[in-house]
Simulated scan of single mutants.
Amino acid sequence: MEEGLRSFSERNNRNITIASQVPDVCRNEACALGIDEAGRGPVLGPMVYGITYCPESRAQELKAIGCADSKTLTEEQREKLFEKLDSLGDFVGWAVEVISPNSICNSMFKRLKHSLNEVSHDSAIGLIRKALSLEANITSVFVDTVGPPEKYQAKLSALFPGIKITVSKKADSLFPVVSAASICAKVARDKALSSWQFKESPFVDLKDSEEMKWGSGYPGDPTTKKFLAKNIDPVFGFPQLVRFSWSTSEQILKTKGVSVEWEDTEEQENQAVSVKKFFVNSGKTNTPRRHPYFADRRLKPATKLV
Rank of each mutant, 00 (worst) to 15 (best):
R27G: 09
L159A: 14
E200P: 04
V204D: 03
S194N: 11
L127P: 04
P234H: 07
P234E: 11
T52Q: 03
L81A: 08
D233F: 03
M47I: 08
T248M: 07
S20V: 07
Y293V: 15
F175S: 03
D221I: 08
S123W: 04
N102V: 15
T17N: 10
K277D: 12
K155L: 15
T74P: 07
T74R: 02
S168R: 14
A32I: 01
D36E: 08
V275G: 09
S179Q: 10
G237T: 03
K300E: 14
Q197S: 06
H114Q: 12
K80I: 09
D190L: 08
S282I: 13
N102M: 15
A68E: 05
Q21I: 15
D264V: 11
V48W: 00
Y49H: 12
S168W: 11
F244T: 00
T72G: 00
F278H: 10
A185I: 08
V146S: 06
W214M: 11
T223Q: 06
Y49C: 12
V260N: 05
G257L: 02
P148A: 13
R78W: 02
V25N: 04
D221V: 05
E266D: 11
L228N: 02
L241E: 00
S157D: 09
G257E: 01
I138S: 03
A30V: 11
K110C: 09
G4W: 05
Q251R: 13
Y218S: 10
L116P: 00
K191C: 13
K191H: 11
A38R: 03
W196V: 04
S168N: 13
P202F: 02
H121R: 14
G215E: 01
F142V: 05
D208H: 00
V258M: 14
E263Q: 13
I165P: 06
D233E: 00
V92Q: 06
P202T: 01
